[in-house]
Design a protein around this nucleic acid. Structure first.
Length: 501
RNA sequence: GGUCCCAUCGUCUAGCGGUCUAGGACGUCGGCCUCUCACGCCGAAAACAGGGGUUCGAGUCCCCUUGGGACCGCCA
């Protein structure tokens, strides 16, 4: 910030721990985090666990784990809203004492009936203020009878409108007369989100609230609370929502794992690639740049460039080719082939162990070979998982032979049953084993045998890697090594077994 | 139903009155490269929701219609 005495930026991410971190929540966290980093401010993680019935420990761990994986770091917290219950209660008491709130003895049943009636009469479903007009005597009487009550905020009786300037949406205003006296404390004495949230934000000195547009209608009420509690409201920025192709809010319940951050980890996403994709949903830098390093993104970010319109998470359930939004995959694939190969190696280590193909030597004497092999095969992969699956033949001998490859490159050319083992023998003489010598040997063999090199090469690829596609065959031969190549070639006739010659 | 928000290619978006015969990206299709596939490169199809204004001039400003979304809980 340019001015010295400008207040420090403090933002927060306040998830309620009732499920796993989903990509919409992660996106909110990312925007807040970027804003804090951009302005040298603070990013606070605050777990809003006041809904005791639905909050779980696993969820809290999942959220923390997800953010950590994404590389979203916070400067304070995690704080737990439940630990500040006394402050929330004190605030409610204070409002009550100052006449800015009142006890409401209406029962849930009465209110429900009124709501239904209002709906059928096509009127606004607003609290009618019955208890606001209670006399002190009536209140005392009801209290004496022990009738349970909630505490409602008393919306000031003022003419005109109250409003605020939303950093994304612009000026938002609402008529005082249209705001209902909302509940701030339950009949069991526990304060509600609207109040807790404001009390916490005041205590944490939050300067900017960046959240989803689904909170927009709460904002006016919260500003009223700030005013009643004698605090200056923060700056608000309401980000567009992320919807599915049917324009419904994305949720784990209807969309499954594809909306959970953890799942992307499981599917082999590079954490930063997911951040990169998510930030582009509803924001752009005003230039054509779409791929950002962390530093570039922090530099480029601004609230002003957040979009007003909701964006769609382009995911088709059951699409065989795209297991999530194609753009997310393409960004992941981009990072997969541009990140330093050492970083990729680090990221796939666990998966290699899980797949039983990890070798400690990959961090020792085979490191150079390991890195160059990863580098060789990365360009056609989309996720980190692909290395241990599609790339298995480079690291182990027990790899699958793709049926398609077998049919197209082997069975169609029965002569390969005899040629490939012979080629294997011929290759034994090749020394040294490099790009030139292997190519010379293979081409010479093909021309001697009177077969097009392509047929030999594609057959080799099938036998050596099990796949239809892959890097140039001579690169493959060098990467896999003389001994293994020859063994696989000699062993190839078995692939013809059970088929007609 | 009420209140509020929103509206450019299939999707993410650029566009802040003339430079828009509307640009980029993903995806799709075609081509080059080539031992295959990918990468890379080249190219194509693909959008201003509709109608009124304002203006010399509107994707850009205003209004209406339509469409979509959010909220309307003693959930957060």
């Amino acid at each position: 910030m340019s001015e010295k005495n400008k207040e420090q930026v403090i933002v927060r991410f306040p998830p309620s721990p009732t499920g796993y971190l989903h990509i919409g929540g992660a996106r909110t966290a990312i925007f807040n985090w970027l804003f804090a980093r951009k302005h040298g401010g603070k990013f606070i993680l605050r777990i809003e666990d006041t809904d005791v019935e639905r909050s779980t420990k696993e969820s809290i761990e999942g959220i923390i784990d997800g953010l950590t994986w994404l590389g979203i770091d916070w400067d304070e917290g995690p704080y737990f809203q439940s630990e500040f219950a006394h402050e929330h209660k004190a605030a409610a008491e204070r409002l009550l004492k100052e006449g800015k709130a009142y006890k409401c003895f209406c029962t849930k049943e009465e209110l429900e009936a009124k709501r239904k009636k209002a709906l059928s009469e096509k009127r606004d479903i607003k609290y009618d203020g019955t208890c606001r007009r209670l006399s002190p005597e009536e209140i005392a009487e009801k209290e004496r009878q022990g009738i349970p009550y909630v505490i409602r905020f008393k919306v000031p009786e003022r003419e005109g409108k109250i409003g605020y300037d939303d950093k994304v949406l612009g000026r938002i205003e609402k008529d005082y007369s249209e705001i209902e006296d909302f509940v701030i404390v339950r009949s069991n004495g526990r304060p509600l989100y609207l109040l807790c949230n404001v009390v916490d934000d005041i205590r944490d000195r939050i300067t900017h609230i960046i959240r989803g547009q689904d909170h927009m209608t709460n904002t006016i009420k919260q500003i009223l609370l700030y005013e009643a509690l004698g605090a200056k409201p923060p700056v608000f920025a309401h980000m567009p929502l992320t919807l599915d192709l049917q324009k419904r809010k994305i949720s784990k319940r209807t969309h499954g794992e594809v909306v959970s951050v953890q799942w992307y980890r499981k599917m082999g996403f590079i954490p930063w690639a997911l951040v990169n994709y998510l930030v582009l949903l509803g924001w752009n830098p005003g230039t054509d740049q779409e791929i950002f390093t962390k530093e570039e993104l922090i530099q480029a970010f601004s609230l002003e460039r957040i979009n007003k319109a909701n964006s769609i998470f382009n995911y088709r359930k059951g699409d065989p080719k795209f297991f999530t939004d194609p753009k997310a995959i393409s960004i992941n694939a981009w990072w997969l082939r541009h990140l330093p190969i050492e970083e990729i190696a680090e990221m796939i280590k666990e998966d290699f162990k899980k797949e039983g193909i990890w070798d400690e030597a990959y961090e020792g004497e085979k490191r150079e070979w390991f890195l160059s092999t990863l580098d060789l095969i990365r360009s056609r992969f989309h996720t980190l998982r692909d290395f241990a699956r599609l790339g298995r033949a480079y690291f182990a001998d027990d790899f699958e032979i793709e049926q398609k490859a077998l049919k197209k490159n082997m069975l169609k050319h029965p002569e390969l049953k005899e040629l490939l083992p012979r080629l294997g023998e011929a290759l034994e003489k090749v020394e040294p084993w490099n790009l030139e010598t292997t190519e010379d040997a293979v081409r010479a063999f093909a021309s001697e045998a009177g077969v097009k090199p392509g047929i030999i090469i594609n057959g080799m690829r099938t036998v050596i890697t099990g796949q239809l596609k892959g890097p140039g065959i001579f690169d493959v031969m060098v990467a896999i090594g003389k001994e293994r190549v020859i063994r696989r070639l000699k062993d190839s006739p078995r692939l013809f077994e059970g088929t007609k010659p």
